[in-house]
Structure formats: structure tokens, C-alpha cells
Deep mutational scan, measured.
Amino acid sequence: MIVFVRFNSSHGFPVEVDSDTSIFQLKEVVAKRQGVPADQLRVIFAGKELRNDWTVQNCDLDQQSIVHIVQRPWRKGQEMNATGGDDPRNAAGGCEREPQSLTRVDLSSSVLPGDSVGLAVILHTDSRKDSPPAGSPAGRSIYNSFYVYCKGPCQRVQPGKLRVQCSTCRQATLTLTQGPSCWDDVLIPNRMSGECQSPHCPGTSAEFFFKCGAHPTSDKETSVALHLIATNSRNITCITCTDVRSPVLVFQCNSRHVICLDCFHLYCVTRLNDRQFVHDPQLGYSLPCVAGCPNSLIKELHHFRILGEEQYNRYQQYGAEECVLQMGGVLCPRPGCGAGLLPEPDQRKVTCEGGNGLGCGFAFCRECKEAYHEGECSAVFEASGTTTQAYRVDERAAEQARWEAASKETIKKTTKPCPRCHVPVEKNGGCMHMKCPQPQCRLEWCWNCGCEWNRVCMGDHWFDV
């Protein structure tokens, strides 16, 4: 396979590697080409510095992935760790964990309700045991953590790749202090920090972006993250068709209702045909949960890209028209025109101005929308079919299609509260000796007794199943 190397943020060049090629071997190839010592090179990928003893497969490097290699003399205490030698983080029983690669970060837990604080980093599902597709590297999971809308060759929703760059020099040479644990960490600028490894760059702020994971991409090709779309790892039924499908869209209502993408497309087109989208002054033209839940309008309007190009163009047109109407304007009634106009409040005669090729020149009556006339309008008909009709959803289907309910059931079956801080902690095999993952707590306690870890627990039921 081919990976592209950008040395000291210059133009990239291809390097041929195998899945079992080590990072140090990659350094040696680059060092020979650039005429520099291999031990002064640092390989940066997806916000993480890659260790010498890791392989291309370990690092989730795919065909035509772009890695950054910078030349920086080692500072005291760094060289041993980078070589894969006596790194205290690798000691058996050590409590410190390697910062998780962005290629394996899962933010789907952050669609849980606000009262489930902490689960994004504490609760991990076991539903990723799908067998890898044919042709994928051994052991590589097909679980997708992110979804994007690819405006490039795909023109559809695709699995996405999370990447990070330095907000100062805009190069992907920043190593994160810690990985993101929720969508806010990724979507809110300057929320996460790190250290830029580019020479002479003092940058410390992280800037995240997404790429389409279905095809090789260049540095400049980015895609918009659709953070309401998630892999259906909890096997929730769709609120409309009641099938279990994946991926799904999880509405931001209190129940976190789930809808499959085909039904979401149908829901949007139906509402669009009836012009029953909601115009929100802050958000724009949007839709609420299909069950009509309060405070559930979709905030990231790129989710409506699921409509496809033709329907999305209609959505944008109707949204612009609705904006004009909300501002007190009118639409030209001549067939084939429909231009938005903003006449004076007491102006009865409205002319669709033909300047700049935008208007048709038609003069019409503001009251009856017919060709302009003197005197009273002959008839004014009330528009028919403008009443909002509820999208029919079966109550039982709505009850079963809740992301929140599956989460709470998982928590109930696989977790116990920490005796000190009461945060839910998952036990997935292993011994009875637990350690609270909350940095402010870190209590060592017994899963069996529910009390602080002691010699009695150690001698009596340390390794009970």
C-alpha cells in the first residue's frame, strides 16, 4: 500500500509500505531520502505521535493516508518512550493509558441525555464484534464512529474520518494533550489543546475536521460531520418502519427517538411537499423529531443533505422563500418566477423588478396576487391545505425507538455506581478489583462488596467470576 509523507509540512511524497511495516522502518526510509538522522524524526498522525514499535496496521493507516513527519531533536526523557523501550505506560498493571487514536474515538455516547454525564468515556458498548469485510486488514473493525456528507465523488452519507490540525499553522502536526470525549470537544473551536510539532510553531489549540472515509482524499478535501447519525450498535428499532437498520439518525429530543435514513428521507420529502418545515429565527429551515417532541429541531442543517441534490435544492429554495415571508415580504405569483420581494408595508401595487435578471417585471396586487387592478379585489380565496398535519407515529413504536432507553438498560445490566462519587462504572470481565475512572475520584473498590478495596476482598473473592 501507499502512504503519503509530508516532511516538515512540505509537499508530500509517496512511500510504499506493508501492513506489518513498523513506524521506525518508515522513519528509516524517510531519513534516507531526506539525509537526516532517523532518531530525530517524529511521525504524527490523527493528533498522535506514533511509536517506533507500532506497525502501519496498528495505527489504522489506510491506503493513501497522509502522515506528517517532522525533524525535531529529542528532548530529555522522550527518546526512550518513542523507541518502544522502557515506557512506564506499558508496564503490566499500570494505570496510565495511551491517548486514544482519533481513528478509534467514539462519540456516540454523547447523544445520551444530559443526566448521563461521564458515560462518553466510561461506558463502552460490546456491539462492535462484526466481522471485518472481505479485503480489510485482519482485526480491523467495521464499526463506524462518525458519518459525514461527502460532496465529492460519493454525493451521499458516508463513514467519516476525524482529523485534527494546529489552529495556528493549519498543519496536521499537532499532538493532542488528551483525546475528545464528546461532540462539544470536536465542534467547539479551541476547546481542546495540544502541542504543535512543526518547527518554530508555538500553536497549542486544536482544530478538528472530518474527511470522507470511503475514498482517498487530499489535504484540502473536508466534509461536514453529521453528528446525529450513528451506527445502530444498540439495535434500536426505527420509529417509523420498526426495522432494525444501521446507520440511524438520533433526534435530540428527551427520548432520543431513532429513525433509519430511508424513513428520514421520506419524512423530509413529505414535509417538504406540504411546505411544513419549521422556520426558526436562529436555526433556519428545519424539522423536529418525527414524533413531534418539543425542543427537538435539527440544529445542523447539513443533515438535510440526505435528501439528495434535487430535493436539497428545493429545500434551500423553500427556506429562502419562507425567510422572505417571515420578513413581511411577498413572492411573485407569476408561474416560473417566484422571486422574493420586500415592498413597503402599505404598498398595494407590487412590481417584480426586472433588474439584474432576477425579476420578471410582472405587476400584481398584494392582496389577491392577481395582475394589478384598481378598486376592490374580486375574490380572495383562503389558501387550502395549509394546516399542519401531524406525522403519524405509532405510540408503541415510539416507545421502542428510544436510544436513551437502550442506554439505561445497558447501564443497569453492566454497571454499578462507584461507592464514593456514584458514577456508573462498567465491568466487562476481569477481577473484582475496580478503579473509578473519574479523575477527581480514582477510588479503588470491590465490585462484589461495593466497598473500598481491602485485604478481605483480596483474599476471599479477588478473582471470582
Rank of each mutant, 00 (worst) to 15 (best):
V5P: 03
S9L: 04
G12I: 04
V15A: 02
V17I: 09
F24R: 10
V30F: 04
V36E: 02
P37A: 10
D39I: 03
I44E: 03
F45L: 08
N52Y: 01
W54R: 07
Q57F: 06
C59R: 00
Q64K: 14
Q64S: 14
I66L: 07
I69T: 01
Q71L: 05
M80S: 11
A92K: 13
L102K: 12
S110Y: 06
V111W: 08
P113N: 09
L123A: 15
D126Y: 05
S127R: 10
S131A: 12
P133G: 11
G139C: 13
R140I: 09
R156P: 04
Q158I: 05
G160V: 00
L162K: 01
Q165A: 12
C169N: 01
C169H: 00
C169S: 00
C169M: 00
L174C: 05
T175D: 11
C182A: 08
I188K: 11
R191N: 07
C201M: 01
P202Y: 09
S205P: 02
P216C: 09
S223H: 09
V224R: 09
V224I: 14
T231V: 08
I239C: 06
C241T: 00
T242D: 15
S246D: 09
L249K: 01
C253G: 01
L261F: 08
L261S: 03
C263D: 00
N273A: 04
Q276Y: 05
V278W: 07
D280W: 07
P281V: 07
G284C: 02
I298S: 02
E300D: 13
Y312M: 05
R314F: 02
Q317T: 14
A320S: 12
V330W: 04
L331R: 04
Q347H: 06
Q347M: 12
T351F: 10
L358F: 13
F364N: 03
C365W: 02
A371P: 13
E374D: 09
E374T: 06
G375K: 09
E376G: 10
E376K: 13
V380G: 07
F381H: 07
Y391N: 07
R392C: 10
E404Q: 08
A406I: 12
T415V: 11
K416F: 05
H422A: 07
H422N: 13
V425G: 13
M432Q: 05
C441Y: 01
W445F: 15
W447G: 03
C457F: 01
F463H: 00
V465I: 15
